[in-house]
Design a protein around this nucleic acid. Structure first.
Length: 723
DNA sequence: AGCACGCCGACT
DNA sequence: GTCGGCGTGCTC
């Protein structure tokens, strides 16, 4: 090797590009290495093969090349490189967000090898002599059948030492046992629509095609996934299933495991211990896992025999990462499907307008499930309660209380949805007008009566509940409005016989909390579920007869142009909980605006009609998906500094008449955790020109960021979901 | 992001 | 006299 040759190394630093190092021996692309960078030892990944170093640059040597695992696959490097380009994030940082924590560290690691042992041909012919009793027992155990470490340790405490020795002599080896993967048991009959969906997607296996599976709640989208995955597994290939919430994975995993006995299912989410995550990731990468189910980060998992990607609840905002590399798992899944030449199936009862527009434009093909899988299940009747004419006690109207009492007397399960946790969204003094504003954020502190605190839901800061107004000393200060805790209390007083279960982030924060919820609900120990939008996220509570939605009007006339889409989607989803499995359902919505087109469309169960209305509005206003957006966010303790930074950027990036730039303006949440937040909104009908603008902005941002100092932080957010 | 190098206040 | 505050500047 010529000593002027070098490799390009990606590092987990917020700096553009790669760094050149001199390796002792030629290194393959994708290998993890340890290098010295600015005085510290970092983990790096070799990005390119050998190249000529730029003249005049002094090169450091590669300190160490890690060999415990094979080099990372090029498909992963391609995906990370695409994500870096698309989201305008440093390439090294993008790759490292795709890796499990243990692979980001400058240490050679591999998960424990749990493959079973067997004797080789030579080993079978060489039994140990009878006086080596422990060795003979081991040999005999392996002669009967392959065994895993635990079983062999039970035969002899020395087992693993002996086996290592035998492996060295070619007498024993670890191996991947063949898996008998079969779809188990009696499969439910498919509806005609489900069968069409399965056949259509199955016909596209082996090439790229994006499918939008739009199925009303209870129409059996999961069954479609299962049938397709069965075909993939029958071919010995792998499937990737991305879901928005960790809490949705246990249910799904259980259902997959029941269906595919013998299949290896790897589960990936951020609550795993580092070691578990590494093991699941490597199992998938080494082809030992057949199915990967996980949250957004699992979209990066290497899968050598990938044949199908499923993104469930594709409309869900949790699929977008909102710090660091701000990627959308659905969009990366579509890119990956294209790169791997496999179909991708996006499922939702209420697809995002982005996906609806892609389907309308023919980029995605649409599959509809309009009927519920359960023949007896019909869509619920929606009744709008006009709160301008109804008297409210603790936010509840008489028709709502009557309906809940009726369901209770029939022993039917009801659900009350309100998108506010805590007791009341604000504490106020009626005498002087004081309200419980957060000292660090432009938000109100929420009354939590159980823990007796005021807590900001944005920065998490809490303080004891005051007994009197901090401004005027008035002792008669009052919680205004309703949250889940207050509803729970009010319903308990109005319907003393009802067994109420509250579900919000406060009650489900503990591990296994969802387990307990399902147990209590399925054991019939609950009459009324009270909760936030968590209740709208694909959890199956079985037979629900009544759904009540409260306090939704805020989404109708919000400053956020996506608020209406989100509200409509959430209401369709909670309403969909009613009337499953043969119980006729009813949905009551309390509102001041019963004539609003959103509620009228909800009453007709008309997702497509209202989606087209919203799309027309977006086209009119030039908002996504009719145009493409990006944000440059800046925040600093001093608001003027953030604005000046963005102003400086604006002044230094060349105008493109096709690119509209708005701002600097305060973010929707203008103050968060003691920092003032400002932003530029960049809009363009052509994605390429938006990216050109951002590319031109990048070096300016790096320079201005340096000049502005540590106090100022900035970030680019491509396809932002929140302004 | 780290971690150096670099110039001004309270300590053995 | 120097220990260390964190401002700015660089990292193949």
């Amino acid at each position: 090797m010529n000593d002027t040759d070098c490799v390009e190394v990606l590092l987990d630093v917020p700096l553009q590009g790669t760094f050149s190092y001199r390796p002792a021996t030629p290194l393959p692309v994708g290998i993890r290495v340890r290098v010295n960078f600015g005085g510290r030892e970092l983990c790096g990944v070799v990005a390119n093969g050998m190249s000529r170093p730029a003249p005049g640059v002094k090169l450091k040597p590669v300190s160490e090349a890690y060999a415990a695992l094979p080099p990372l696959p090029e498909s992963l490097l391609r995906m990370a490189a695409f994500a870096a380009r698309y989201y305008h994030h440093p390439a090294g940082a993008a790759l490292f967000t795709a890796l499990p924590t243990l692979l980001r560290q400058p240490r050679d690691v591999a998960p424990p090898d749990r493959r079973p042992w067997r004797l080789t041909e030579a080993g079978r012919l060489a039994p140990p002599p009878p006086r080596q009793r422990a060795r003979l027992a081991l040999w005999q155990a392996l002669e009967r059948a392959a065994q895993d470490d635990d079983a062999l340790r039970a035969v002899s405490p020395q087992a693993l030492r002996v086996l290592a020795e035998w492996a060295g002599q070619g007498l024993a080896e670890r191996f991947d046992p063949p898996r008998e993967v079969s779809a188990a048991g009696d499969l439910p009959a498919l509806t005609g629509e489900q069968a069409t969906a399965v056949d259509s997607v199955a016909a596209s296996l082996g090439r790229y095609q994006a499918w939008l599976l739009q199925g009303v709640t209870g129409s059996g989208k999961t069954e479609v996934y299962l049938r397709l995955i069965a075909r993939v597994l029958a071919e010995g290939r792998q499937a990737l299933v991305v879901v928005p919430e960790i809490s949705l994975t246990p249910q799904l995993i259980e259902r997959f495991a029941r269906r595919f006995a013998g299949a290896r299912i790897a589960c990936l989410h951020s609550h795993l211990a580092d070691g578990e995550r590494l093991e699941a990731w490597v199992d998938a990468w080494q082809g030992r896992a057949d199915i990967v189910i996980g949250t957004r980060l699992s979209v990066f998992t290497p899968l050598p025999r990938l044949a199908l990607i499923v993104v469930d609840e594709e409309h869900d905002a949790s699929l977008k990462q909102h710090d660091g590399l701000r990627y959308h798992a659905r969009d990366l899944a579509v890119w990956r499907a294209h790169d791997a030449e496999v179909p991708v199936l996006l499922g939702s009862a209420t697809p995002s307008l982005e996906s609806v527009a892609n389907a309308d434009a023919g980029r995605y093909r649409r599959l509809m499930l309009t009927r519920r899988a359960h023949a007896a299940a019909r869509l619920p009747a929606v009744r709008l309660i006009d709160t301008r004419r109804a008297e409210l006690t603790d936010g509840l109207s008489a028709p709502v209380v009557d309906a809940l009492a009726g369901a209770l007397s029939r022993r039917e399960l009801s659900l009350v949805y309100i998108n506010r946790r805590g007791y009341a969204p604000v504490l106020a003094c009626p005498q002087c007008g004081w309200t419980s504003g957060c000292p660090h954020c432009s938000a109100k502190q929420v009354v939590h009566l159980q823990s007796r605190v005021l807590r900001c839901h944005h920065c998490g800061d809490a303080e004891p509940l005051p007994r009197a107004c901090p401004d005027c000393g008035n002792a008669d200060i009052r919680p205004l409005g309703e949250g889940t805790q207050r509803l729970e209390a009010a319903l308990g007083a109005l319907l003393p016989k009802a067994r109420i279960l509250r579900i919000d982030r406060d009650t489900t924060a503990r591990k296994d909390a969802w387990d307990a919820v399902y147990r209590r609900v399925s054991a019939g120990e609950v009459d009324i579920l009270v909760g936030t939008q968590m209740l709208a996220k694909g959890h199956d509570f079985g037979a629900l007869s009544l759904v009540v939605a409260l306090g939704c009007d805020g989404g109708l006339y919000s400053a956020d142009f996506r608020a209406g889409e989100r509200l409509f989607s959430t209401l369709m989803q909670v309403a969909g909980r009613a009337g499953r499995a043969g119980v006729a359902g009813e949905v009551l919505v309390q509102t001041q605006w019963p004539d609003h087109p959103l509620y009228q469309a909800l009453a007709r169960h008309d997702f497509d009609g209202y989606a087209e209305t919203l799309l027309a509005e977006r086209r009119e206003a030039g908002f996504p998906p009719a145009a493409h957006q990006a944000l440059v966010r800046a925040d600093a303790p001093d608001g003027a500094a953030a604005a000046a930074f963005l102003q400086g950027l604006l002044a230094s990036v060349a105008d493109d008449p096709a690119v509209r730039v708005f701002g600097p303006a305060p973010a929707l949440m203008a103050r968060l955790a003691g920092r003032e937040r400002a932003q530029l909104v960049i809009e363009c009908a052509e994605r390429a020109r938006l990216h050109a603008w951002l590319s031109a902005a990048e070096p300016v941002l790096a320079r201005l960021g340096r000049e502005a100092g540590r106090a100022l932080r900035w970030a680019i957010d491509v396809d932002p979901l929140e302004l």
